[in-house]
Design a protein around this nucleic acid. Structure first.
Lengths: 191, 191
DNA sequence: TGTACATCAGTGAACGCGCGTTCACTGATGTAC
DNA sequence: TGTACATCAGTGAACGCGCGTTCACTGATGTAC
């Protein structure tokens, strides 16, 4: 028996979040509307507001989830390899694999940046990023470990951003991870 | 005698462009509307479309102007100092000083990225960026000069982006140029 | 220098659209006894 | 196990708003002769 759509969705919050990821991947974070997310999730237009309040509420959840995923990815790379260079590569891989999350995370004007769920996940990600920094450049990170961490963050963040915007020369090829390894090598492994 | 607003504006195209820069600085490129730009320029709501066609037309002009300004700034830094390191610093300075242009330029989905005025200015900027690359790392740029150029571009672009998004630690201080010098030193001047 | 005419630049009323928000409601689920 | 009631999750009609776009128009400027 094909049953009609039940009155209660079951997990509308997750469904709206998933719809948001899809919509952002298609058209960018600025283009989403609550009514469109409702349509995608197959519920009435007013339903999403019940769970998220407004558009910024949805994007806040996306950002929080994104920082969690990023923290997981960075920590896993550090644990798996013990090499900070691989943490940088993981950062680029995250940006390419989770483009929608990545684009939201770094546009704090779109969401409630001071929401505690966001700030907690952000802190986890920062921890994962900085924890391996002292090994950067084989211990030659210089007197200011934080500064060298920002340098590492800058180069992988810049590369990821330029890659996603299709701003880089075509000759770099089609594999972002390989290109990222070559680029990051200039900072991380200079002989 | 205070004269009434004349029927012909004189240079409405420039006025709309200036209004766009102001509006983008306030609320980001996604938030602008043709009607709002008309209001800011003090003309009727349909006037901007006469000059630009649609919103993407306005942002195309902003992007083209931005790439021209960037090319000028990079070329001037190269000429003035002969030091590619200073070209990188000039890149960050441009991003901070022309935030609205910078934000539009690297969101090609918002404008007609293949417009010839954009592509010409883009080529000029790329030329200015790459022309000094071979001196990167004091000639130790390695076999692939283009790759080292992308590395340099990545680190300054990433730093500028993170700075503008207020993503960096507060301990970096309030002077983006000084911080950029310290960061870029890791790539450009490593002992 | 004057006049006729074409073109250019901007106007303002009108339209239909998708949006966020409100609100009384309804159907389903959970809890107390 | 059954019943009453409270709470939760989602509905759908209605509203007002700002938007882009169209279009007949008008005022100003440029050009031909």
């Amino acid at each position: 028996v094909t049953r009609a759509r039940p009155y209660h969705h079951g997990d509308l919050r997750q469904a709206v979040l998933a719809a948001a990821i899809t919509a952002i991947t298609e058209s960018g974070p600025a283009a989403i509307s609550l009514r469109d997310l409702a349509r995608r999730a197959g519920v009435s237009h007013a339903a999403p507001a019940y769970h998220f309040g407004d558009k910024a509420g949805v994007l806040t959840a996306v950002a929080a989830q994104g920082y969690q995923l990023l923290a997981d990815a960075l920590a896993a790379a550090q644990q798996r390899t013990g090499d900070f260079y691989e943490v940088g590569v993981a950062y680029v891989r995250f940006a390419v694999d989770h483009r929608a999350h990545f684009e939201v995370m770094f546009r704090p004007e779109l969401y409630h940046a001071h929401d505690e769920s966001v700030e907690a996940a952000q802190a986890r990600a920062a921890e994962a990023l900085y924890s391996g920094v002292s090994s950067l450049l084989g211990g030659r990170a210089g007197p200011d470990v934080q500064l060298s961490g920002v340098a590492a963050w800058s180069i992988v963040h810049g590369f990821a951003t330029l890659w996603l915007n299709k701003a880089l020369p075509l000759t770099l090829g089609e594999d972002p991870e390989a290109a990222a390894r070559a680029i990051a090598g200039y900072l991380f492994r200079f002989p």
